[in-house]
């Protein structure tokens, strides 16, 4: 693979509630912004100040519905491209998911059936989006889900890999989603990581959640579980992702808690890197 991924290092999802914490933190390489929150490219001055400090800003979409059977809305893609140009983004990201069908909004990212039809519909949509976004690369994220479609014809890793290969897209690897799916639906998270196209990673998401009645909810409204940080270390023992970031969307804790999570994330990455380099020397 010849693609050169931008080096991003440590990052966080920018939210108004976190703006002060982000301003004060000096070791961040990037922030991600939720595209739908900035219609018509109306980005607050706080984000421009971060750009002046040298941070990369990555627009992240939730509403394209790339895995939907219905063709995607080109105006939504153009809005994403406009925002990316406004913040001089190195690339943009979206999900391998659908969010609407039959005229109804689901209000959430839903899994695409892992059938040939689901695969082909997604690839057609991603190609439309990619061509409208060009030359800006598109990174696609694996989602978390509490249920699976029946009659899957391929594994999640094969599904993701084929979509990325055939559309030449990057991978936004959500490490917490891999961990959550393994916890709720079964499977070995490290094994799933190994099967994903890790050479295509643009950056990684790490978010928190909570367990209710034995089910883990990836809510981004609670602390990142220790198991997710351990999986970050496992990933970094295998490969060197260009960037890793914390996602927090609700129930914002005091700044010190977010600071500690960023520290723990940096530590998890460094620990994995030591293991990787140790393996090379040995």
């Amino acid at each position: 693979m010849s693609m050169m991924q931008t080096q991003l290092s440590l990052g966080i999802g920018w939210r108004p509630e976190l703006a002060l914490t982000i301003d004060r933190r000096k070791d961040l390489g990037f922030v991600e912004i939720t595209a739908e929150n900035f219609p018509r490219g109306a980005v607050p001055p706080a984000i421009d100040r971060l750009r002046e400090r040298g941070l990369a800003v990555i627009p992240h979409g939730n509403s394209l519905s790339l895995g939907g059977a219905e063709p995607i809305d080109r105006d939504r893609v153009r809005a994403l491209a406009d925002l990316a140009r406004r913040v001089n983004a190195p690339f943009v990201s979206e999900h391998i998911a659908f969010v609407r069908a039959g005229g109804m909004e689901a209000g959430h990212l839903l899994p695409v059936p892992r059938t040939r039809a689901g695969l082909e519909a997604t690839i057609e949509n991603v190609k439309i989006a990619r061509d409208l976004l060009a030359p800006l690369p598109l990174a696609l994220e694996n989602i978390s889900t509490l249920f699976d479609w029946p009659n899957a014809e391929m594994s999640e890793a094969d599904f993701v890999t084929e979509i990325l290969d055939r559309t030449d897209s990057l991978l936004l690897l959500d490490i917490a989603n891999v961990w959550a799916n393994a916890k709720n639906l079964g499977g070995d998270p490290v094994e799933l990581l190994r099967q994903l196209p890790l050479g295509r990673i643009a950056y990684c998401h790490v978010g928190g959640g909570e367990e209710h009645n034995g089910v883990y909810h990836d809510s981004h409204a609670a602390a990142v579980p220790e198991g997710v940080f351990e999986l970050v270390t496992e990933l970094c023992a295998i490969t060197d992702p260009p960037g890793v970031m914390i996602e927090r969307d609700d129930d914002f804790p005091p700044a010190a808690v977010i600071e500690a999570e960023l520290d723990r994330l940096a530590q998890a990455v460094a620990e994995g890197a030591r293991r990787r380099e140790g393996a090379h020397v040995g």
Partner: peptide, 11 residues
Amino acid sequence: QLAEQQAALVR
């Protein structure tokens, strides 16, 4: 067919 399956799930 895929559209109908996805709509049924959303409902």
